[in-house]
Each structure stands twice: as C-alpha cells, then as structure tokens.
Design a protein around this nucleic acid. Structure first.
Lengths: 191, 191
DNA sequence: ATTTTTCCGGAACATTCGTTCCGAAATGGG
DNA sequence: CCCATTTCGGAACGAATGTTCCGGAAAAAT
C-alpha cells in the first residue's frame, strides 16, 4: 500500500464549495480553487476528476451541510413554530458575513444555461425536497388541528418554498433584515 | 465625414442582450457575442468599449425593453386587475420558448460576486422601481376603496415584488404554469 | 532495507479568453 | 475628383483557462 492522502477530502471539498458559492461556476477558476483548497493541481484532478465533477460534488456537499436546517422541519413538533424557526435560521445565515450570500443551489439554478444539464436534476430534487418537507409539516399541522383542514396545503407549501427563494435573491442585493422578517410574518399569518 | 455604421446599434445590442440573458456574463464569450451580433471584433470594441460595458448597456436595454410591462402597473385603473395582468404577462414571458428563461436582471443579481460592483446599483434600482410601482398602485387602490385602508401596503408591495422574484427562479428550473398561477391567486387574495 | 504503491509539486500542454492594432474598403465634404 | 474620416475584417497579442504528465518524495508492506 502506498502513502495516505495528506489532506482531508471533505475539508478541501468544503473549501471548494465556498469558492463556487461565492463566485459561481464559471468565475471560479482552477487557481482560485487550488489556493483555497491548498492543493496541487494533480491532487485535485486525481481526487475529483475535473472542474464540473468537483462542482457537482461541492453542491452535494452543500446539500448535506445544509441538511441540518431542513431537519428542523422534519423534527418540529409544531408546524408553525417549526416553519418560523426554519426561516429565522435561513435569514440569519443569509445575512451573516461569514458565508457567501444567498444559496449555492439557487445560484446554480439561476446560472444554469440549458435546463438539460445534469445539474438540473440535482436542483429540482433539492427544491422538491424542501417543498415536500413543508408539505409534510403542514399536513401534520392539519391533523393536530393547528392548521385549519380546509387550507390548501399544496399551495401553502409552494408559497413557503417560494418565500425561501425570495430570501435567497433579496439577500444577495439588499440584505434588509426587517423587510425579510416582515415577509415571513406576513406569510405565517396565512397558515 | 467617414462612412456610416453598417449595423443598427440597437439591433445588435438586442442580440447581445439575448446572449447574456441566456448564458450569463462569464459564460457569454466574445465569439459567442460576435456570432449572434454578426459583427467584427473591431466594430464591437469600438462601439461598446469592452465586454463589461457591453453588459451594462445590455442590461439597460433590457430594462427599457421590459418597461412596457411595468407601464401596465403605472397605467392600470384598477389595482387588483393591473397587478393580475402584470403577472399574467410575467408568467407568459417567463415560460415562452422564444426568449431565455427567467429575468436577465435577476440572473445578474444572483451571478454577482461582490455587492460592490457598479452592477449592484443598477439592479437595486430596478428592484426598487418595481416595488415602487406596486406600492403606488396599491396606494391608489386604497384611495378608491378597492383595498381596505388598514392593509400595510408597504409589506404588500414587498410581497408582490418577491412573488416576482420567485417566478423568475422557478421558471428557470421547473416552468410549471399551474403552480405559478396558484401562487399568484393566493397572493392576490391577500389584497 | 528494499520494494511497491501512492501522492504531490511543478512544468508543460493546447485552447480559449478578452483585447489591440493595422491596412483596406467605404463614405461624405471640399 | 480627391482627401479626410470612419468602419470593418482579420491577424496578432499576452494572459488565463482547464487539463495532462512526469519525476521525485513519502509511506506502507514485505
């Protein structure tokens, strides 16, 4: 057996993800990535294949990384408070100076040229998952009587996932917390 | 005086805009643009300066081009029907196969790296304009009693412009008309 | 210690990028 | 008709792009 890798694959993948997140796919050059990942070219290409593969892996890593946020919805006992908490965290992370603004997957969706790319499946999947989580939680809320049964939760879940998208966009250009907060309040009143 | 330009500046600018719209700034290469605009390199550089300047001009051209849609809001007599009509057209143009999906300015906003770029001012301006149009129309609706005076039209206008953003994102990945329609209906009920 | 396997730094690759430049063609005013 | 002026096609530029390759170093196994 030969020697081991000198780097932690997940750690450098995380670094790469941050670069893609901040700059977008096209604008993130290999030298950019190498510097952030602190890797040599050959290591990158041997470990990840090529740039596009790395991008896909980065997005999947992002998904896993953000899973915790979605778990809030799955594990919430109360529908309304679960949703409320989800958006609190969503707004927080959309505005904090540490991580890049917006959402990597939303960026990828908007930056996508043709909808036939393999990326598209990944993105739709993610969008659907989120909407599904909202749906499940709303349905539970209906069962417990927290949400009136006659409400069309199909549409409600769509409304919520659109609120999510909007926050991603608005975070990139304005980053006005109070207005986002207002938006969430307004939608919450509909539940 | 020397010879005249052999091309119509606005016509080629329109072509360039379509390329930027479809591919995004980074992915739209000069050869791509040249082919679409049917121009020689020197003509492009002499007429528009460089790629970034062309991009800015293309966005401004897009704004002017889409102004007609916003005029619906400004000239509408009834608030609700004006807003309804705006979104009908918005969804139509978001889904038709002719023009690229989504909205050029939204794409630009999301593709933006640092928020300090000169682009940012342009984008915020456009976002504010749209929100302002919604606001004005809602206010007129309040005056005529079409909309109940106690409604917070500040938040309502923000909600509407976020609905606009959401449609732009969703159009790029799914393009499901009926769901968009539902969304609009739902928000309209709040007015 | 030697062999074997793997990793990694860096040089090198062809290609494409955005941009510049020059000469020829075309136009309009004198 | 000729000259001044502008446009335009295409060659050429250096820099940056993504990718490949090789040789030596490092680590595990025998």
């Amino acid at each position: 057996m030969g020697r081991h890798k000198e780097f932690d694959k997940e750690a450098v993948l995380h670094k790469a993800m941050l670069v893609f997140w901040k700059k977008g796919y096209e604008a993130a050059s290999i030298p950019d990535l190498l510097e952030a990942m602190d890797l040599s070219r050959s290591s990158l290409y041997e470990t990840f294949g090529d740039k596009q593969s790395l991008y896909i892996e980065a997005i999947n890593w992002y998904k896993k990384w953000k899973q915790a946020k979605r778990d809030i919805l799955v594990n919430a006992t109360s529908a309304k408070s679960g949703i409320r908490q989800y958006f609190e965290i969503h707004i927080d992370s959309a505005l904090d100076g540490e991580s890049p603004k917006g959402c990597l997957i939303t960026n990828a969706a908007v930056g996508m040229d043709s909808p036939d790319e393999p990326l598209n499946a990944l993105i739709r999947e993610r969008f659907d998952e989120l909407e599904q989580s909202f749906y499940e939680l709303l349905r539970k809320g209906q069962e417990t009587g927290e949400i009136m049964p006659e409400k069309d939760i199909n549409t409600l879940s769509y409304l919520l996932s659109n609120l999510n998208h909007s926050i991603n966009i608005v975070a990139k250009v304005q980053g006005d917390r109070s207005k986002m907060q207002q938006m969430v309040d307004m939608v919450m009143e509909m539940l």
